[in-house]
Each structure stands twice: as C-alpha cells, then as structure tokens.
Design a protein around this nucleic acid. Sequence first.
DNA 1: AATGAATGAGGATTCATTCAT
DNA 2: AATGAATGAATCCTCATTCAT
Lengths: 220, 220, 220, 220
Amino acid sequence: MRDVEPSTPEPRRRRANGDESRQKILAAATAIAGERGYDGTSIALVSERSGLPASSIYWHFKDKDALLAAVIDRSWVEWVAGMSTPVQIEEGASRLEIMRALMRRTGRALLESPDFLRLGLMLTLERRPDEPAARTAFLHTRGETFDQMVASYAEHFADLDEAGARELATFTMAMADGLFVAREIRGDDMDLVQHFETLAVAVLAVADDLAARTPSRTRV
Amino acid sequence: MRDVEPSTPEPRRRRANGDESRQKILAAATAIAGERGYDGTSIALVSERSGLPASSIYWHFKDKDALLAAVIDRSWVEWVAGMSTPVQIEEGASRLEIMRALMRRTGRALLESPDFLRLGLMLTLERRPDEPAARTAFLHTRGETFDQMVASYAEHFADLDEAGARELATFTMAMADGLFVAREIRGDDMDLVQHFETLAVAVLAVADDLAARTPSRTRV
Amino acid sequence: MRDVEPSTPEPRRRRANGDESRQKILAAATAIAGERGYDGTSIALVSERSGLPASSIYWHFKDKDALLAAVIDRSWVEWVAGMSTPVQIEEGASRLEIMRALMRRTGRALLESPDFLRLGLMLTLERRPDEPAARTAFLHTRGETFDQMVASYAEHFADLDEAGARELATFTMAMADGLFVAREIRGDDMDLVQHFETLAVAVLAVADDLAARTPSRTRV
Amino acid sequence: MRDVEPSTPEPRRRRANGDESRQKILAAATAIAGERGYDGTSIALVSERSGLPASSIYWHFKDKDALLAAVIDRSWVEWVAGMSTPVQIEEGASRLEIMRALMRRTGRALLESPDFLRLGLMLTLERRPDEPAARTAFLHTRGETFDQMVASYAEHFADLDEAGARELATFTMAMADGLFVAREIRGDDMDLVQHFETLAVAVLAVADDLAARTPSRTRV
DNA sequence: AATGAATGAGGATTCATTCAT
DNA sequence: AATGAATGAATCCTCATTCAT
C-alpha cells in the first residue's frame, strides 16, 4: 500500500517487514469483520486475504480477540479522522443550521468509514459471555465520543445542566445508531446524509423538552 | 429417559408430545440466540440446553437456518402480543399525548420481549454472504410492522403524503432501534420506557419538518 | 477384535455400534499411551490407529484428558486381574517363602500388563500445572492398592502397628516401582520376576527394622 | 533492550555476555523440564521464562533435543556435586552404619537437586520412537554412577563377585528411584532422608542374599 | 552474539449434518 | 416421534524451526 521506491525494482525485500505485514493483516481483518462480524472473521480467511500464513497472524496479534480489538481501534481512528473535518458554519447561523451542519458531518463520516460502527454494534448486541476485548475496545472509544458530545452540548445549550446534556447525547447517539442500522438494511437507495440532516430538528426538539424539565438553572 | 411405568397406562398425555419437544427446542434456541447471535447458537448448545439430542433438533427443523427462522417467528409473535395491548388515550388528547402513549407501549413491549429485535439487529448487521432464512424472516416481519406504521401515520398526519409517512416511519423505527441499542449497552440503569416517551417530541418534530417539505397537499 | 459371528458374513452392520467403537478407541489409546506418554498420545494418532475419525473419539470421551483417565482405569483393571491369581503357598511355609510368592505374583502381573504402571509413573512425574484427570485416576487406584497392602501387612506382621504397616507398604511399593523402572531401562534381558523374588528379603529386613522401632505393642 | 549509555564506556562486563544468556536459557529450561517433561518443555515457554527470543535459543543450542540434553548434563553436574560431600564415618563403624551414611547422603542430594532424576525418569518411561539425545545423555550419566557403585560394592563386600555387585547396585538404584517417586507423589510430608536411611537394612539384606547365592568365592 | 519475522505441520476441539434403527 | 453414533470440514492456536539482518 505504501508507495514503493521508484528505482531498483525489488532487488532484496521479501523477508521481515513487520509493520507492513501487520497492516496487511489488519486491513484484511477489518474488511472481513465489517462484512461478517466477529465469528465470521475466521483466522483462515484473514490469512488467505492477507496473504500471510495463519501462524504469522499470531506473531502480530496475541489471539483472534486481540486482532479484532485492533481492528476496532483502527476503524475508530479512521472514523475519527472523518469526524475531524471542520464544520463550515456561516456567521450568525441559527441553532438549527449549526445542528444540521454537525449532523451532516456525522452522516458523511459514517458513510465513508462505517466499519467502526457496524462491527461495534454487532459486538454490542452479541453479548457473549466472555466479553471479548474487541467489545470492550468499542465501548471504550464510543465512550470517549460520548463524553466529547456531552461537553459540547453543555457548552452550547445554556439551559441544560450536566445531566440534561448527557441525556441529549444519549438521544443523539441513539438516533445516529438507528439511522445507520436503517441504512444497513436498505442499502444505497437511502440517502444517509440527508436523513442525518433531518435528525437535527429531532435533536433540538428533545433538547427543548429536556430543558423544560430542567429545574431552572440560571433562570431567575 | 422419561421413566416408563409398566402398568396402568396414563390416560391423557403421551401423545402430541412431539410439539412439546419442539417448544423446548425453540425456547432454548431463542434464549441462546438472544445471547450469542447466529453463529453463537450452535446446535450442540441448543441440544444441551433443551435436553434433547442434536439429531432430534433435526427431526423438528430442517437445518440450523430453519431453526433460527422459527426463533425469529416465535419471538416476533411474542413481541407483537406485547404491542397489541390497547393504548389508553383520553378523550381530546393532544397529538403529543397520543404519540407519547404509543411510544410508551413500544418501549414496554421491547422491555418485555427484546429477543426479536436484538436477534434481528444482529442478523441485519452480520451481512453474511448466504443470506440466511432467519434474516429474511426478520426483515419480512419488520417490514409488516413498518407498513402498519406507515398506514397509521398516513391516517393521523393529514399534512403528510405517502412518501412523508414512510419517511416518518423510517425515523421512528430508527430512533426506536437506537434507544434499544443504547439500553443493551447500558443495562438496567437506563429507564427505557421513559426514554421512549421523550422520543415522542422528536417524532413530532420530524413530522412537522417533513410536512413543511411536502408540496402542500390538501393545504387550503 | 471380538470374534465375528461365523455365519452370514456381515450383511448389515457398519452403522452404530457404540460399545465396540469405544473399545477400539480405548485399545488404541492404551497402546499409544503406553508407548509415548500423555503428550505423545495425540488424538490424530488414536484416530488413525482405531480407524475412527477424531470427531468420533469426542463422541465417546469428553476430551483427551477423559480418554486417558479411561485408559488408566482400563489398564488398572487388567493389572488387578493379573494380581488376582491365587498365590500358591504350601502348608507351613516360612515368612520368607510367603513373601517371595507374593512378590513373584506382583512381578508377573507387572510383566503382563505394564501399561498401568508405566503410564501412571509418567503422569506422576510430569506434574503439569493442570493436574489431568488421568493423573488423579492413577493416584486414586494406586491408593486403593496401597490400602489393601497396608491391611494385609497389619494382619500378617503382628509386631507392626498401623503406622508401621503403612511404612512397610510405602517401601514395598517403592521397591516395586524402582525395579519396574530398571526393567524399562534394561529391557528384556532383565528377569523381572526373579528380581521381585529377591526383593522379598529386602521387605522383610525393613519390616524387622520398623518393628524394632515400634514402641512394643503387645510385647510384655 | 539494555540501555546503552552514550558516554563513559563501562570498564568491565559487556563481553562474554553470551555465556550469561546461555545460562539464563538453561536455567529456564531446567525448571520447566523438571515440571512438565520433554514435550511440555516448549521453546516458546523457555523463551518467555528466560526473557530471550526463541531464535536466540537456537543460536545457543542446535535444537530442542540438544537443549534438553544440556539440561540433563547441567542437572547431573548439580546432583553429582551434592553426592560429593564426603561421608562422615566414624572409626570402627559397622557395615550398617556405613551403608546408612551413604544412603543418607544420597537422599540429601536427591532432595537438593531432584531435577536430574525426575527428568531422567520421565525420559526413560516416555520411550519415544526417536530416542532423543536427552534420554541418551541421562542413561549415559546414570550408567557412570552405576559403574562407580559397582566398583565400590565389589571393594566393600568381599563375598560378592562382579556379577553380584552389579546386582546389588541394580537393587540399590531401583530402591532409590522408587523412594524418589514416592516422594514426588506424597510431597513434603514425607521425610526422604530418613526413608533413605532405612533403606540401608534392605540393601544389606539383599547383599547377604546375593552372597549366599554366590558360588563361594574366597570362602575358606 | 543475537533477534524480529516468518512459516508449514500439527495440536485439540467443535461444527452442522446424516443415517440406521 | 425420536435418537445414538458417526463423520468430514472447519475452528483457533501452538509447535519446532529457519533465515535475513
């Protein structure tokens, strides 16, 4: 994947390039896990798709669980990158316009790197008794995203207290998850980004509802 | 394995025992599938938990796929029963109050029989290449629920056309799915019913937004 | 292995004969374990030698550990059978002659069915952290033999108390184990039975030594 | 891995570090082999316990077999050291007292460095088809000990011919092996040294028995 | 004097499924 | 209406060993 050196076309090489192999394995595993879930991601398949023998996979990752945890991490990094594009907000934009811009970005990021959420949701639902590291990794990173959202809400919605902000974040994530699932079912004929934009009004409505229930913080 | 008394043949029972076994298998499979998903539901586990040998499972069901499709059906019936409790709506209730009552019922039904949705979502996300009958069964029954919701929305929201009603149903289901997932993550310390009630304002907000975009149907 | 019925040369047969298969597996496993020890007894080897696929072995035995525990049991039964031949003791035989006859029988039994002790000693020495069931089975059955020997000594050696009898049994077993090991090293050119006979004088000498140390039980 | 200071080069050390690694590997391998036998001593485990990569083990030893042969050698050296403490024998000590002192020393040496015998016996019993070098090494060194014992017996027991001395040595080693095994089974609550002392009377009894059978060598 | 990376063979075990009874 | 027994393919993972650096 890394661009090959232009001159002297592979004279040596072939033995020992740790990081490259690791990346190949991760790439294969990410693709497969995104398609078939935890159980469906067999080491044999990853081996075949990455071109490395199964035993080499075990050199790079302790076991299947650790591999899938790394997959979660990797796809999370990708997704976070997508979420880092600055949001274009015009001077004097309304609350709704701001919200809409934010949701649009989320939808786009999800469209571009859906592996994180898809695999994560699968792991979340399949509550297998042994709590794989991969699941823990997902919940951890998801928790970070949640915290950021809470902080952002607490800052922008003056009439929400901490608990209210948390509630609003819960709803936002839930709605995002739900739309994502809907798109997984319906496939390409559903415009995910546009639906995310529509979600903005829903979030604001919930915010107002929560604020009305907040025991009048700064209200005199 | 059942002890067989030599004399005095039991008057009733003993016949139609086939169905009893079938139910035992289904019950075990439902529980396991709810916990561990499609792959995690091994025939050996179902056999162990139901107390019947694996070969008996194959007497009752063509294969694992058919068994899981039956599980989906069974859990759907359960869930539909929960959704059939009549909604108590007072005379002259507001749009919001009606919506809230409906959402409350949904939340409750999900709380009581979560297997259908949990297993269904898992099947949905695990897009295995062979499209198991179980997944199809889920999407089919889910589609029916969707159609009913569309019909209901088309009737109650005069300013929404057919397409609008479908959109609104899409959002409603998405939000429900999302909250359900959130509760799966958070566990018992999240009051699912109350969150579903709050969702009512979100749904109405989206309805209004969609109506505003509708090319003025019966508007005078 | 069981002699086949003389008439009607295998018309049906082939499917399902549980016990026969179990015996085939056990026989193969016993032979291999006797040759190569716990680790050396791979399921693949047992499968090959017994003619049944590996998965069938798992139908009959929970896992490798259970299989080897069964092997221990089986070889113990064999060995106990060898130890059950009545000892020919002439009227008015001396203590030494009696002891010699007993040791001779032990040597013979060990010569005919050495698997129990060989495998058992291997398991005993290899104190692997997980304490396999096979090891436990060996120690258990060995314990039974020990108890019988103690009872026998307590009865025949009037000047030994219970503790003394236990000590004597300990020495007897130790010497027997040791000679067995020696024969494993030296192979056929060592006459095990004759060596066991010689052991008789050693046992008696120890018995006397222990008795001398016993705090004069019935001694007036 | 060791931190390399940029300036002020350490005066001593740093060279001949190869031997240090070798010792680390040997120490780890000895410990593991004593616990788990030949098969149980995996290169990976030795690598982990010694802190050196597996490939380094292959730098120091040709293969696993050579490593375990070295382990045998090493533990033999240790054991021989224990056996070299001079035996304190008083002027005019009886045959029994001399024997007892010798056995006591043996018991002590075995208690302090049991690895040699434990591993050796395991290798002896596990008669794997390929006859590993480790097994050969054990039998060789054990043979040396045997020869010394024969020489000693031939010298001290005037009424035993060469064959008789060999027989007596065989019995002595067998009894020692047997007691050692007993102690492996019973653990710390068995006083190995005291049991070895008691063995003295058994050895002498056998010696007399053998002598009686010897065709009157120097007997006048 | 060492080691990171790789690798094929084989380890135990579970899988869904079948079939004779 | 059921089930004991069997089975081939697949599962994850560990093995001893090698080799380029």
